[in-house]
């Protein structure tokens, strides 16, 4: 007989799915997160505070509200969802891609905050100096700004990943709780707590969840320290 720690097939599927969803959500939101962070950190434009507010909405709204808004815009009958389905064959509703979209959105404000803070701390005079040495703005960004904000980007990615691993409300509202397709770790735990005799499974998944979260935290510490060392405490 197997020990209590042996995972069932469904539980293993939920863990794999959660890792996939969180990774895809983190990677897919990175380009947008970087662009919007730079925009907010460096440019003054009309409607800046509105954009900032929209980016932060998922942080302050109830996750269920975010999930419901996703459902009515990205669902099969929603305006964006219908368009994507008809023209590109992309479907979010009740698919794992929808879970990734919900997670990406929920982690987005955390990612933007981390990158923006680090972009604001970059000395603009260094960028001006790079310009006088012949670097065009795009090269200044690639060779000066980007390397200097790597710690912020790392922190932002880890935060987004961790948020995705724990995302429950928006996901379950938008794409439901389908084992093997949209049942992520939190949804699986929730399901197990609702059935008689599910306690052992819920506990197993909870332990896994704690381990993954700790690993992400340690990794971010490690990367931050490494980035700090390569800058030799630049100040």
């Amino acid at each position: 007989m197997d020990g209590w720690w042996t995972l069932s097939a469904d539980e293993l599927t939920a863990i794999k799915l959660s890792l996939l969803v969180a990774t895809v959500a983190m990677m897919a939101s990175l380009p947008f997160g970087l662009a919007i962070s730079m925009l907010l950190a460096r440019r003054d434009f009309w409607g800046k505070s509105v954009l900032n507010g929209i980016v932060h909405l998922p942080l302050v709204m109830p996750p269920v509200v975010t999930g419901y808004l996703l459902l009515i815009t990205f669902g099969r009958k929603g305006p964006v969802g219908a368009f994507l389905d008809q023209h590109f064959g992309i479907v979010f509703s009740f698919r794992w891609t929808g879970a990734a979209l919900a997670c990406a959105l929920m982690g987005f404000p955390l990612m933007v905050r981390a990158i923006r803070l680090s972009a604001e701390s970059v000395d603009k005079r260094l960028e001006a100096a790079a310009g006088t040495l012949g670097a065009s703005p795009i090269w200044v960004f690639l060779t000066i700004t980007l390397p200097l904000i790597v710690p912020g980007i790392t922190a932002g990615m880890i935060l987004s990943f961790a948020r995705s691993m724990g995302e429950f409300g928006a996901t379950i509202t938008f794409v439901s709780n389908i084992p093997g397709e949209t049942q992520t770790l939190p949804s699986a735990i929730y399901t197990l707590t609702q059935v008689p005799g599910g306690d052992a499974g819920a506990l197993r998944l909870t332990a896994i969840s704690v381990i993954i979260s700790m690993a992400a935290l340690l990794l971010s510490e490690l990367l931050a320290r490494k980035a700090g060392r390569s800058l030799h405490a630049a100040t």
Partner: peptide, 16 residues
Amino acid sequence: HRRKLGTVFQEGRLFP
């Protein structure tokens, strides 16, 4: 970046 002038600033501004 298109002026081809080298500039030395008061605070050095080396890339850390």
